Amino acid sequence: MTPQEILKAHLSKTITLTDDEFSYFFSHLKPLSFKKGESIITEGDTVSCEYFVLNGCLKTYYVNDDQKMLILQFAMSTWWASDYNALYNDVKATVHVDCITDTDVLCLTSEDRERLCREIYQLEYFFRWRSNKGFVATQRRLLSFMNNDARHRYEELLNMYPQLYNIVPKHLIAAYLGVSRETLSRLYQS
């Protein structure tokens, strides 16, 4: 599929745009390609874009004072990623976004997103809907961390996103679940 087809199929699950509206929206997106291991956002950066993943996989993570990586999100095809605190609040990035695999994205600036949402109601609806889905997912993940053991969190992730286990190295899945690589190995084998 072309980038246009991927994005159009993604949007059409939530909204309907005319061909002209979609072309206008697509004209504001910049295609970018990154290699495995390449950083898109690094702590301290100024962030002006969010990224729609066409193919590949990104990780959003934070490195704490003990130099431990804490993964906030994996972003596979048709997912969006950025440092949203930095993007929306005009502060320096506190998280990193980098590539687990070679990845192609479409970059949308915050300025363009806001203008497009004012001009095309359906896009405003889409971005609000997407934000709400993100809030719900974040709440579920926090509640799972507060209430469930590592085995349950592992099984939840496996059930929700089985494709992650074919793309993401086990040490990164362990970091997402908040467990050691050894603990994940025990869970993975049982």
Rank of each mutant, 00 (worst) to 15 (best):
Ala75Leu: 09
Lys92Ser: 13
Phe52Cys: 10
Met76Tyr: 02
Asn64Tyr: 10
Ala75Arg: 11
Thr60Gln: 13
Asn89Ile: 05
Leu87Ser: 03
Asn85Lys: 15
Asp65Phe: 09
Met76Cys: 10
Gln73Ser: 12
Gly56Lys: 06
Tyr88Asp: 08
Met69Arg: 05
Val63Asn: 07
Glu50Asn: 00
Tyr88Leu: 10
Ala75Lys: 11
Ala86His: 07
Asp90Pro: 00
Leu72Thr: 11
Lys68Arg: 10
Cys49Lys: 07
Trp80Asn: 10
Asp83Val: 12
Asn85Tyr: 15
Trp80Thr: 05
Asn55Phe: 03
Cys57Gln: 03
Lys59Pro: 05
Tyr61Thr: 10
Val91Pro: 01
Trp79Pro: 03
Ala75Gln: 08
Cys57Ser: 04
Tyr88Ser: 02
Tyr88Phe: 07
Thr94Trp: 08
Lys68Ser: 09
Ile71Pro: 05
Tyr51Trp: 09
Gly56Asp: 04
Trp79Gly: 01
Met76Ser: 06
Gln73Val: 06
Val91Leu: 10
Asp65Ile: 05
Tyr88Gln: 02
Ala75Glu: 05
Tyr84Ala: 06
Val91Glu: 14
Leu72Met: 08
Ala75Gly: 12
Thr60Asn: 15
Asp65Ser: 08
Leu54Ile: 14
Tyr61Ala: 04
Tyr62His: 09
Thr78Cys: 09
Ala81Gly: 11
Leu54His: 06
Trp80Asp: 09
Asp90Met: 07
Asn89Leu: 14
Asp83Ile: 08
Lys59Tyr: 04
Leu87Phe: 05
Glu50Ser: 06
Asp66Val: 07
